[in-house]
Simulated assay, not measured.
Amino acid sequence: MTHLLQLDASARPGLAGTDEHGSLSRRLTHRFVTAWQTRQPDTTLTHRDVGGAPPAFIDQRWIEAAFTPAERQQPWMAEVLAESDQLIDELIATDILVIGAPLYNFGMPAALKAWVDQVVRMGRTVDYDETRPDDPFTPLLAERPRHAVILSSRGGAGFGPGGAPAGLNHLGPRLDTPLEVIGITRIHRIAVEHQEEGGERLAASIREAEQRVDAVAAELQSSFSAEATPKAISA
Rank of each mutant, 00 (worst) to 15 (best):
Y128Q: 11
E79Q: 14
D129I: 07
L87R: 07
L81W: 05
L81E: 07
G107N: 11
M108K: 08
Y128K: 09
V149T: 00
A65T: 07
R121F: 09
A114Q: 05
G107V: 06
Q74R: 15
L87D: 04
K113D: 02
R186S: 13
H170L: 14
T125N: 02
Q73I: 14
I96Q: 13
A65E: 05
Q73D: 04
A203M: 10
V116H: 02
A166P: 04
E90Q: 15
V120G: 03
D117R: 06
G123Q: 04
G198K: 01
G183P: 08
A191T: 01
A166W: 13
L141Q: 03
A204R: 14
E143Q: 14
L81C: 02
L140M: 03
I150F: 02
D135K: 13
H194L: 08
P136F: 13
D85Q: 15
R189Y: 13
T125K: 00
T185I: 13
G100C: 06
A164N: 09
R132C: 07
P133C: 02
D176G: 06
V98L: 06
E193R: 00
H147Q: 12
R189I: 05
G155V: 00
G163A: 02
A191I: 00
V116S: 04
Q73A: 13
A65Q: 03
A191C: 03
R132K: 15
G107K: 01
H147G: 01
I187H: 11
K113C: 10
P178R: 04
P109I: 04
L151E: 03
Y128P: 14
A93Y: 10
N105Q: 11
N169K: 07
